[in-house]
């Protein structure tokens, strides 16, 4: 009497696990600095136990069966965390493909009838392939998450608001200004104005590669919003080529205070706050 393959697999669970882990450990692709052998073993064991307990005659042909939810969840968890840890796709693929190999290897030893062997391994392959797809979907989702987090971080650090003097803020803008960035810049700036009670803000655009009408519009919006809050906004760092494009495009910046350099903007700010910068050993005071 031939055992059915589920019983075989159930019986040989430990052997499958060993074969699977051995293939992975022997593989040159496994980077043991990323995952210890114990961790690998425990996640493999969890997956196999879950798979074996949910696998039966009916659902082997239906990889979408809810019976596999547990397996899918474990797989998703593993590949998600692998993606975040910086595993490459090959390593993640090897993980699940290794299981398929181990399963078929054991099956081959146990089942003698080539007919049955073939049809059963076909079913298993189909099921495992579906698991690979799921692994990949979650792997990519994990990667996307990493990218999104980095995007957030970049936009966070790319808009520092610096308090250069009591009541004077400076905001160096580096890189292209699009509308979502303008929004972040504006929010940070206005928030900082409220927190520090500053009355003058200097927007330095020397790090902005190009100013087109859209960017100019964003800048003007920021200036007007600052004014509504009750603070003055100066735009500095206007390079000659930017001045050229602004005029050629017919953008009117005449009701905005613009300065060529951050230094002259700061000087203007000092003057309007009635502050004076003096050299300590000034022998003659020209400014009296």
């Amino acid at each position: 009497m031939q055992d059915n393959i589920f019983q075989i697999l159930q019986k040989k669970k430990d052997q499958i696990l060993e074969v699977w882990i051995k293939t992975q450990i022997n593989s040159p692709d496994l980077r043991d600095e990323l995952i210890s052998n114990e961790d690998l073993r425990s996640s493999c064991e969890e997956l196999i136990n879950n798979l074996m307990s949910s696998l039966n005659e009916e659902n082997i042909n239906n990889p979408h069966s809810p019976d596999f939810d547990g397996v899918n969840e474990i797989l998703a968890g593993i590949s998600f965390s692998q993606a975040k840890k910086g595993f490459n796709p090959r390593e993640t693929a090897f993980f699940i493909i290794g299981l398929k190999e181990a399963l078929i290897h054991v099956l081959q030893e146990e089942v003698s009838d080539p007919q049955i062997l073939f049809s059963e391994s076909l079913k298993l392959t189909r099921l495992m392939d579906n698991f690979s797809i799921i692994t990949f979907e979650t792997f990519i989702r994990g990667r996307e998450e990493v990218i999104l987090r980095q995007t957030d971080e970049i936009s966070e650090i790319s808009t520092p608001v610096i308090r250069i003097w009591d009541g004077i803020l400076a905001l160096p803008i580096i890189g292209t200004l699009d509308s979502s960035r303008t929004q972040i810049v504006m929010e940070n700036l206005l928030q900082e104005i409220v927190e520090t009670g500053s009355s003058i803000a200097i927007l330095d655009i020397s790090g902005v590669p190009a100013v087109d009408s859209l960017v100019a519009q964003h800048l003007m919006k920021t200036v007007s919003a600052t004014r509504l809050m009750g603070a003055e906004c100066i735009i500095s760092g206007i390079r000659p080529e930017i001045a050229q494009t602004i005029v050629h495009l017919g953008i009117d910046l005449s009701n905005i205070v613009t300065k060529a350099t951050l230094a002259s903007a700061l000087k203007f700010a000092f003057r309007s706050m009635r502050l004076e910068v003096k050299a300590v050993v000034a022998k003659e005071n020209k400014n009296s």
Binding site: M186, E187, Q191, V194, A225, L228
Partner: peptide, 20 residues
């Protein structure tokens, strides 16, 4: 003199097209 406008309000007013 209007004082103490919230940042979010200022941004919204500008977007609305109302620079006061």
């Amino acid at each position: 003199v209007v004082v103490g406008m919230q940042p979010a309000v200022a941004i919204t007013l500008i977007e609305l097209g109302l620079p006061l």
